[in-house]
Amino acid sequence: MQVNGKDVAAGLIFIAIGTAFCVIAWTTLTMGTSSRMGPGYFPFIAGILVVVLGLFIIISGFGHETTPFGSVPWRGAILISLAPIVFGICIRGLGLGPTIALASMITCFASYKVGFVQALAITAVLTVFCLGVFHYGLGLPIQVFGPWLHV
């Protein structure tokens, strides 16, 4: 029997999310009654709904050919999701300037087409531009060079 793998995968993700919320709601929150709903009531119902829809999505995938998932830009996915994390870790310590440069360098390499020199050029322009707009223009109260760089 043919099964559409994408539908099954999507269904499983929804079931996982719905179940997680239901379990946490059931174990840590008060449910209350329908006339006085507690904090857990609404999320629990919504969680059940998501689980049920997930099941239906899996069922709807049976009897259908699977459609191609398509290529995934692995390098891009890793680097682009890394950039905000690095930004978050460094912003307090390194300050605005170096953090922008770091995040920009990381993102540039997400594309196979960018060489090292190009990345440096994009980063330099972007850093100057962002500092101009956010620090000098909008007056963002973040130090340009953070405490990690004060010797």
Binding site: I100, T107, I122
Partner: peptide
């Protein structure tokens, strides 16, 4: 490739 580094950095600064 010149656009998306700008998108990511702008968003990060803005959100922070």
């Amino acid at each position: 490739y010149m656009l998306f580094p700008a998108i990511i950095t702008f968003s990060a600064i803005g959100i922070y």
